[in-house]
């Protein structure tokens, strides 16, 4: 897993199909709601290479959430193929998909989705429980992961004792703990103020730049998409536009220009 992440560093959008980490071929998704059939995806084909930072854009109903669910192995395409790391996973069983989610994918959600009344450390440990590793290694990995998002000192805090930005960082640490190949972030800044949003984007950019982690970011906010390297525009279940991001923003450079709204949150942690 890690080999591919580090092997392809160049942010090229035009590479060989074999090197693609994610490859969709004519993917359709039809929801059968009994009386009506909702055609959420209408033949999507795309490739994402290792080390890319892709923003998936689109209004609600554009199919971007459906795409995210399929990329995240939470759902299977009705038609078409999904090659993840060279393997066609479109017909995988639920158990196989769960295993892929556990080992290759990391999720970050808009709602953070941390377990309440559970310490940050244990929240981060959650994916390792299902990975069959020893308790000692689990805790070690969770601590490392928390350190990567700058929350080493908050390991024993409960989510209720953390700010929104910190909670989202815990969620990112959780996504990273099993050393995934791909990080899938679904509106990760949707519940955060603008400064905290940029801080989160900073973390994602650093992970992408420094560790070669492939990031797929779903957002409907144009200014958040500006932090990605490549933007995919969806409308009516189809991929309408696939363009490299021009005038890409670098969060590290943007942050000093922003007024510090939450002094307590920013202090000492980032």
């Amino acid at each position: 897993m890690d080999e591919q992440a580090t092997a392809t560093e160049e942010p090229s959008t035009q590479a060989h199909s074999d090197a693609a980490l994610i490859r969709l071929e004519g993917v359709h998704k039809i929801y059968d709601l009994g009386e009506v059939q909702v055609h959420a995806l209408r033949g999507v084909s795309l490739e994402i290479l290792a080390g890319e930072f892709v923003a998936v854009m689109g209004a609600s109903g554009s199919g971007k959430s459906t795409l995210m669910n399929i990329l995240g192995c939470l759902d299977r395409p009705t038609r078409g193929h999904y090659y993840l790391d060279g393997t066609d996973v479109s017909q995988f069983s639920k158990v196989e998909l769960a295993r892929i989610r556990n080992r290759k994918l990391g999720f970050v959600f808009q709602q953070f989705n941390l377990l309440a009344r559970t310490s940050a450390l244990e929240n981060v440990e959650l994916p390792t429980i299902y990975a069959g590793i020893t308790p000692q290694e689990r805790e070690q990995r969770a601590r490392e992961s928390l350190a990567r998002v700058g929350l080493a000192g908050r390991a024993h805090h409960f989510p209720s004792q953390l700010s929104g930005g910190q909670q989202q960082r815990v969620a990112i640490a959780r996504a990273l703990v099993n050393r995934p190949t791909i990080l899938l972030a679904d509106e990760p800044t949707g519940n955060l103020d603008s400064r905290t949003s940029v801080e989160i984007m900073d973390i994602l950019q650093r992970l992408n730049e420094e560790e070669g982690l492939t990031v797929v970011l779903v957002t409907h906010e144009q200014d958040i998409a500006q932090y990605a390297k490549r933007a995919l525009d969806f409308r009516d279940g189809k991929l309408r536009r696939d363009t490299p991001v021009r005038d890409r923003l670098i969060a590290r450079e943007v942050l000093p220009t922003l007024p510090s709204l939450q002094d307590d949150d920013a202090a000492g942690e980032t």
């Binding site: 995240g72 939470l74 639920k94 158990v95 769960a98 295993r99 989610r101 556990n102 080992r103 999720f107 709602q111 989705n113 377990l115 959650l126 994916p127 299902y130 990975a131 959780r174 099993n178």
Partner: peptide, 16 residues
């Protein structure tokens, strides 16, 4: 329900 969703997203199988 949400906790179950999260657990499944991070790799819990049905039997887990």
């Amino acid at each position: 329900t949400r906790e179950i969703g999260v657990r499944m997203a991070v790799g819990a199988t049905e039997s887990d």
